[in-house]
């Protein structure tokens, strides 16, 4: 199973499941168009610099899959998506806007969790938000990851799915 998870075929399937989960949440709760972009598959210690993002929601997985999901976007987009999600206007991520953006990540992670049930029961942690740009995120060396990029009318974002691949 671990070798299977690290294969490019499986990563493409993960990317497809992420696209489905994102599409469902955007269609149901945000009523805005979302267009998938490229998928980047890499070992986390490979050199690659993604487009700058300012807000990252982290939801960790344990159980059937160990790893998690990141939802990352520029600040203006996180505020806009939180506004579309709750129906309120925000100019700061502190307070309810952060809760809203975190819940958006939680819903996407939940959609992915449902689609990965064949790997066994997966538990999710509550969302955590990191704001800022000047940091480096590091996984265990035996974790693998993919990033799936998206674009909506308000701006770009990506979903990263990282997982223990043995």
């Amino acid at each position: 199973m671990k070798e299977e998870m690290a294969s490019l075929t499986m990563k493409k399937e993960f990317a497809s499941l992420i696209k489905e989960a994102v599409h469902d949440v955007f269609l149901t709760f945000l009523d805005t168009e979302v267009i998938p972009g490229p998928m980047i598959a890499k070992k986390e210690d490979d050199t690659y610099r993604p487009p700058e993002t300012e807000v990252t929601v982290i939801i960790n997985f344990s159980g059937g899959i160990n790893g998690g999901v990141h939802l990352a976007s520029p600040l203006h987009l996180s505020l806009k998506l939180a506004s579309l999600f709750s129906g309120e206007e925000y100019d700061t991520l502190l307070g309810e806007a952060g809760d809203g953006f975190g819940e958006l990540g939680n819903m996407i992670a939940g959609g992915l969790q449902t689609r990965l049930e064949r790997f066994g029961e997966i538990n999710l942690t509550p969302p955590t938000i990191i704001s800022g740009t000047d940091y480096h995120m590091q996984y265990k060396t035996n974790f693998d990851s993919i990033k799936q990029y998206f674009k909506c009318p308000e701006g770009p974002f990506y979903i990263e799915f990282f997982f223990w691949a043995g």
Binding site: F29, A82, F85, S86, G87, E88, E96, D99, G100, E103
Partner: peptide, 11 residues
């Protein structure tokens, strides 16, 4: 515990 989620469920 999320006021946003309460709004979304109500909606």
């Amino acid at each position: 515990d999320s006021s946003v989620m309460r709004k979304i469920v109500a909606r």
